[in-house]
Design a binder for these strands. Structure first.
Lengths: 346, 346
DNA sequence: CTGAAAGCGCTAACAC
DNA sequence: GTGTTAGCGCTTTCAG
């Protein structure tokens, strides 16, 4: 195993020194080239690149991280679900992270995981990340972790303290308000709400938006029906609501729940939208093809992620200086056929 | 910045040496404790753990990786889509990877990404991973990368060579065959197929399974209709198929496409399942709540991932020795109401 | 514009 | 059971 002689017997991977030797420069110059540092003549740069190519050189990230103290990777903790919303968010995130030149490390905290968010964060920190994104967390009470990197909270208020916290909203509240307004604008006296599990901040925001819309028009909010995001829970809620003649409009906090809800309603003989209007939340494109096509509200994940991440990276790379200003995410109501005016009163 | 004096001014993170000093042992002993190596007395182990706890010590993975040559992380390249299938697969994978004591690095290759799979793999290698999982790749022609770690191909044949290749099937072909058989068993003369994009191996497998089922009963396979996984493409296919009185049963390669298909069929006045039966693929639970509830086939992601991963990790940790045997993934047909016997002939 | 020296924090191999 | 000695492959600092 003597490094100086054969380097491990098997074809060992080339190191920057091998490249330097071949190119006839110093190791540091190789490093300069690979880090796009200035002050390397074009000629030398070419020579180095050529040598690296020839050798099949790939730089060693562990060594880089160790020497520089930066890992160039950011960690994300998500609630591992295959739902359309969370999955879209993750895809957007990966994209944005990679575009920014970072690598992504993912940890799921299935609901009820021991350790939960704190455990996931600790694990990320141990692996080594320059920043952390917490995606749509649930409320786990007091979370205490000793974090030493900037943290981005996506779609939630900060749930623990960190040296530098940046929060990005996807605007759930505004979106929920828009959905409710749409129904109210159609002439419904009131709008019922099929809420998501209240441990999720996203669910709370939507509930709040719904309540705000109602209050702005001076309506009193009817009792909230609780779901768990699943279509099954929406179905259960629908069976409950179907018997109540006062419900003519329902805002569901998720598309899947809306679908389950509609199914129960129709099964009970209530027509959608003629008797009851329903609006969902997420805009999973498949629901344009069910009957009736679902009116819903689109979550601006891409915009929210891009903005939140750019601020996170700013905090990583230029600590101290002012972060870019936050912009309000767009609200996009997708009106299809599950909503309409309330039934005529006799 | 002199390490010997103040360690960087700001409160630097504790290193293993700090723990060793506090516990009155050597650095190596700290290392032993944290790696669960034997030959450390319980008493010393306690002392070390106590000191680490007091200092808030977290081991530095970059240094560990550099010194040991192992990163304890595995990389996954996926086709970043928020679809139910791929998302479920990713969740299963993260779970299994973490349970095995590894960290997960994710790279999405949106279809049409420059570099594609090769680029993603290179990037993963540069970041440093002990193994790579390729999740449901598309055919990109010849992929050439110089890989030096074991690779797991999930739901596809190996698309490039690696020192150690392990393939795990999710059994798409068998599943597709079961779906087709179900329809044939119901009395349909033949079954049409709404296929996924043929660049995807998953789509090819399903098509193959469908064809096999037909051949086994001596039926000739009708022309295939092409979709792109989206409900919209299913809808387009449905408009095409609705006019053809010979179609009484369709097997769609994905749930979303099946939904779009049904929508078009119903819109054209064909009843499902009375006139035409439809079966999907994936088993997204929400489709139990549309009309008609979708008959579909469940992908055994969890089983396939767990098995594939255990073989990948075997290849990483015990190269040379025989890998655990492969077991066939379970096939689970979820019969709901979108399928039934063919319409009576006059 | 380029190079030399000195580590980053840990584990490997071996001695005790 | 435990400690010692050398690096892992890169970046940093500072000289030229």
């Amino acid at each position: 195993m003597n490094r100086g002689t054969v380097r491990g017997g098997a074809a060992a991977l080339p190191r920057s020194e091998d490249v330097a030797l071949l190119a006839g420069v110093s190791r540091k110059t190789v490093s300069r080239v690979f880090n796009d540092e200035p002050y390397v003549s074009a000629e030398v740069r070419q020579r180095v690149l050529g040598a690296a190519e020839k050798l099949g050189y790939r730089r060693n990230n562990a060594a880089r991280a160790l020497a520089s103290g930066r890992t160039r990777s950011i960690g994300v903790v998500t609630l591992g679900t295959a739902g359309y919303g969370p999955a879209s968010l993750l895809v957007s995130l990966e994209r944005a992270v990679r575009d920014a030149g970072y690598a992504l490390r993912v940890i799921n905290t299935l609901e009820g995981d021991p350790g939960g968010i704190a455990g996931a964060v600790t694990s990320l920190l141990e692996q080594g990340v320059d920043g952390i994104a917490i995606s749509e967390p649930v409320d786990e009470g007091e979370v205490s972790v000793n974090v030493d990197v900037p943290v981005l909270f996506l779609g939630a208020p900060p749930v623990f303290t960190a040296p530098k916290v940046v929060a990005a909203s996807v605007g759930s509240d505004i979106l929920a308000q828009a959905a409710t307004d749409h129904l109210l604008g159609l002439g419904h006296d009131t709008v019922h709400h099929l809420a998501g599990p209240q441990r999720w901040y996203a669910a709370r925001d939507r509930l709040q938006g719904w309540r705000t819309a109602l209050e702005q028009r001076g309506r009193v909010a009817p009792p909230v029906v609780q779901g768990d995001w699943s279509a099954a829970s929406g179905y259960a809620a629908g069976r409950e609501l179907a018997g109540d003649p006062s419900v003519t409009a329902v805002f569901a906090a998720g598309d899947d729940m809306a679908i389950g809800l509609i199914h129960a309603l129709v099964e009970a003989g209530r027509r959608v939208p003629d008797d009851i209007s329903v609006v969902g939340f997420d805009d999973n494109p498949v629901f344009a093809y069910v009957s009736p096509p679902l009116t819903t509200v689109r979550q601006p994940f891409d915009a929210a992620v891009r903005e939140g991440l750019s601020r996170l990276i700013h905090a990583i790379e230029k600590p101290g200086s002012e972060p870019p200003a936050a912009t309000a995410p767009p609200v996009e109501l997708v009106i299809r056929s599950s909503t309409g005016p309330p039934p005529a009163r006799h």
